[in-house]
Design a protein around this nucleic acid. Structure first.
Length: 222
DNA sequence: TGCCAGGCCGGGT
DNA sequence: ACCCGGCATGGC
């Protein structure tokens, strides 16, 4: 089967099983951007508390964050963990937003995809996944997001070699799917969902995975 | 109770 | 070019 057909088959199976995931609904692009940093290696529930603190303090705008001391910022985002380093990373990102786009999110959102991605990656604390999350979920640009779940699901179905890099996996999706923002959005969220529920190391429910029969490679474990 | 969560950086080999 | 420790809270 062609890779493009296989990917769409996987998408259909996941969507059947879990439905729409509604990631980052209605929060507005700036909250999405902040959340993308806060959720680095961190449970989303904790991130929501931190976002709530910021919102309550009136800090959920580029101008407000720009004026906030790093230490004060760290105090507010404490529930998200790694608060000292994340406070610096957020400041780096906001500083960059002001340097390059005059602090105007709309200006950033209308930037060319590749240029914007390189710009984001030049910020200390913004790596590939965070950059791609911002591009896709905050800017509505077709940049596929890869994470540990994505890797595990593809590997378990023997779609990629074990030593694949981030960029290789990203390219695999983008070369074999229509450049559709909504599809990228939902697909990534669904991969996280199935990864959490089934496709984990030593997970006994692995055999019940809705993807089990897609490729005739059911229940690979490990 | 220990392990994990929607990563990334910096220093050492 | 890899490998690894550090960063930290809250839920199960």
């Amino acid at each position: 089967m062609k890779a493009s057909d296989t990917l769409m088959k996987i998408y259909q199976k996941l969507f059947e099983a879990f439905g729409t995931q509604d990631w980052w609904p209605g929060d507005g692009p700036f909250e999405v951007l902040v959340g993308a940093v806060l959720t680095q290696n961190t449970n989303w529930g904790n991130v929501e508390r931190a976002l709530q603190n910021l919102k309550a303090a009136g800090k959920l705008s580029p101008e407000a964050l720009h004026k906030t001391e790093t230490q004060e910022l760290a105090r507010l985002i404490r529930p998200a963990g790694y608060f000292n380093i994340k406070a610096k990373r957020l400041k780096n990102l906001i500083d960059w937003l002001f340097e390059r786009y005059n602090g105007e999110l709309e200006k950033m959102r209308s930037e060319d995809l590749q240029t914007l991605r390189e710009g984001l990656l030049s910020v200390r604390g913004i790596g590939r996944e965070t950059a791609d999350s911002i591009l896709l979920y905050a800017c509505n640009l077709p940049s596929f997001v890869v994470d540990a779940y994505t890797y595990r699901v593809l590997l378990r179905h023997l779609l990629i070699p074990e030593d694949s890099t981030y960029e290789e996996i990203k390219t695999f999706f983008e070369d074999n799917l229509p450049k559709d923002v909504q599809l990228y959005n939902e697909f990534h969220a669904l991969l996280v969902k199935v990864g959490k529920e089934y496709c984990k190391p030593r997970n006994p429910r692995c055999k019940e995975c809705p993807l089990g029969e897609v490729l005739g490679v059911p229940s690979l474990e490990g």
